[in-house]
Computed example of a mutant assay.
Amino acid sequence: MEKDQDPTIVVEDSPEQEKYELLKEKLKYKQAERENSKKIDHKQVRLNIQADALPSKTFFIMNALAAIIAGYGLLSNSAAVVIGAMLVAMMLGPISGMALAFIDNRWLFFKTAFKTLVLGVSMIVSIGIILGLININLPITHEILSRTQPTIMDLMIALAGGAAGAFAAVSPRLSVAVVGVAVATALVPPLVASGILIAHLEWKHAANALLLALTNIVAIQISSSLVLWAAGFRRGSDEEVNSTVIEFIKRNIVSLLVLFALGIYLSFNFMMMLNKQMYEHQVESLIESQFNQHNNLIDTVQFDRRKEMTLIRVVLRGDIAPKPQQISALNQKLAQDPRGKPSVVQVRFIPVQIIQAKESPDFDIKQVEAEQLIQP
């Protein structure tokens, strides 16, 4: 038969058919509701957390590999490699174990989880030191230095990460592995960075990186304890028992005090960093308004904080060098640095030479044209 002569079957929706489809959708919705409303298996969750908190071979091998990958990511200044290293890290286990031990009031289990955490941290820092010594000629990169300025924002991130990890651990439908990657991102890189900085004898930066790791550990433990407590993990019972907030505070009093002290210190660090950024932005804006004229352009502005002042080094390129009187007047306008010390400008001027053919006419270069020529 020809195509236009093919038979066609037309099916009309009947009211019974619509009712059948609606019934199927309702059944699927009820199934999804039952899946979401599954109760927490307290016994199984406890077994999983306890298993992850043990000092197993898998724990050390995976964290060692993560430290090596993260270390070379830090040394090569590659954020993507650092994040990718966390796919094999397993640092959430012992911290979750400590959180459960506090909630269930199990001192022996706490010692096991704490021992695992200390051994893991020591191993990761040691790997960082070895990598730093092997690659001692490589410079300290921005990825390493970014882990040496902990602020209150890092504390907030760790609190949220710990809560997410604990919630994933108790939820029947969520995978704790994915959340563990995010938590490990906050732990392994600063520990490796501290080891690399120790190898370079940068003790202050190394201590700040360790402080960041400690902040993350304490914050993750507190938020994990809170989620587990809210989920009914109390006194080692499989069933939820009456436990007041006061009891929760008593069991986590040491961690809460440490967290409070860290919060105050990191808030102070954040305010200092904010004041420094505002000061540098204000100074750079004033310097640009003074020197970016007459075809002159600023290359770099560097802040050299010294004991009695902040020396501001300015590299300027152009046609006309600024006069000492201009710099003196600029120094009078500049605000004091965050320490209350004077700000002093020093200019390094690089003259721009215009070369053209003899027969070419002389003409002035406009400011916009000069910017286009000087920009790389």
Rank of each mutant, 00 (worst) to 15 (best):
I365H: 05
G132H: 02
S37V: 13
N269Y: 08
N208R: 13
G93P: 05
S96A: 13
P150K: 09
A219T: 03
A99H: 01
A193R: 01
F59W: 01
S328M: 12
A329P: 07
T244Q: 08
I68E: 08
S255N: 13
P338K: 04
P150M: 09
D41K: 12
L334S: 00
Q5V: 11
L159G: 01
V283T: 09
G71A: 10
E288N: 05
A85C: 09
K276N: 13
L214A: 09
F109I: 13
G84F: 02
R348Y: 14
K30R: 15
D154R: 03
L54D: 04
N295P: 03
I198N: 05
L117H: 07
Q293I: 10
F59V: 00
T148D: 02
I222R: 02
R251I: 11
V218T: 04
V179I: 15
D337N: 00
G232Y: 03
V227E: 03
V352G: 06
L228E: 00
L226I: 12
Q372A: 14
I365A: 07
D52H: 10
M156V: 13
F110Y: 07
Q325Y: 07
Q221E: 14
N292W: 04
N275P: 10
K38I: 08
P7A: 09
A182V: 09
L330D: 00
G73K: 02
R46S: 03
D4Y: 08
S243W: 07
S360E: 12
A193G: 07
S243A: 10
S37W: 12
P139G: 02
V218Y: 01
T310Y: 00
E16M: 11
K333W: 07
L119F: 11
G165Y: 02
Q346R: 15
I220S: 07
L259Q: 04
Q293T: 05
T116N: 02
I152L: 08
T112Y: 01
D4V: 07
A230T: 14
D13A: 15
Y20W: 15
A321F: 05
F248W: 11
R173V: 14
V254S: 09
G236A: 05
I157A: 00
A199Y: 04
A321D: 12
A169C: 09
I40V: 06
D154Y: 00
R306H: 12
R147Y: 00
Q44E: 09
V183Q: 10
R251E: 03
R305P: 06
V188H: 04
F363G: 00
L266Q: 05
F114I: 02
N63A: 05
P324E: 08
A64V: 06
